[in-house]
Design a protein around this nucleic acid. Sequence first.
DNA 1: GCCGATCTATATCGGACCAATATAGATACG
DNA 2: CGTATCTATATTGGTCCGATATAGATCGGC
Lengths: 176, 176
Amino acid sequence: MDVRTICLGILTRGDATGYEIKNLFEEDGYQHFVEASFGSIYPALNRLTEDGLVSAREEAQEKRPDRKVYSITPAGRSAFIASLLKPLPEDRHRSPFVFAMLFSDLLPGARVASMFDAYSAQIQTKLALLQESNGKQKTQGEEFANGFGRAIYEAMLNFLKTERAKYETAEAVAAE
Amino acid sequence: MDVRTICLGILTRGDATGYEIKNLFEEDGYQHFVEASFGSIYPALNRLTEDGLVSAREEAQEKRPDRKVYSITPAGRSAFIASLLKPLPEDRHRSPFVFAMLFSDLLPGARVASMFDAYSAQIQTKLALLQESNGKQKTQGEEFANGFGRAIYEAMLNFLKTERAKYETAEAVAAE
DNA sequence: GCCGATCTATATCGGACCAATATAGATACG
DNA sequence: CGTATCTATATTGGTCCGATATAGATCGGC
């Protein structure tokens, strides 16, 4: 899913600025499976405007930077739906942590333990975010995404918990 | 995890060509959490060679294209371990499918159903691959990665199964 | 009351990475 | 006998991210 398509999708739910689009990923997290950076959102919105798939109106604000509020056009809506009818790219789940674990035999036990605990805490945090926002979903799709995310994070945590005993504790190592 | 680090890691397990490194991702799947393309592997190996972190020897082959076999140097091994001691980047799980599901209300029911089933089949295939290779792992790290992957895919499939009934079946739609 | 941090808001640039393509002989399959 | 797949390296166009620049406003703490 390229950033242009992602922007179109968000704009089907209402007008927004580039800044607001980015924040949707961080606040709502858009359920953790979609992301884009400023460095790709702003150029994407420019190209969408050129192509007539969105329209922009500038709002000069007092005491705040000017805003460019984008709206999706009928052509944009069609293009968006058309892109969802094409075969979808596969998921890509990149995990530097799993990569590092593949080489745990080369690392000090203390490092493995701390890496493990940090990762578990991170997943726990992400799960908590989804649980917190659970129930606030507006569409069936958002409910699905929230539930899917929770199912995955819970499974990850469960597995991590059962594996944890195989590695020395960070405290035990510190005590040596 | 940048591609250079990934290449270094693979080379700690033995010498390999760029071609072989790429195939590790596809055959072993490197447990589905690590990937890189030719377009980034070859330049990465060149830069690693320049930096003295790997060495290359060319093997002219009869009846086959020449091979450049790379070996990690002591400096490369140190650099690799050092990079695993630094804080790890977070996982990134991008799912065009979940993104599409967020907009299921804009799509024909038949499309949602077929998309859903195609995705389930895809995850099922990936799970089967991990189950097939389960037991063939050489290191503790590989066993961890395999188990982690299976736990995640199983949770995904379970969730998909419980949600499936909410969407019309592809067959029912086709029959209309 | 003031200082630093965070927020609103857009934008660009370098670098990293991917997908597609080019090349080319070998082997395998039907 | 032709086509597809395999071994093997490499480049290119384009996409995307992370860092950085800019700049006034607001907010919290001391």
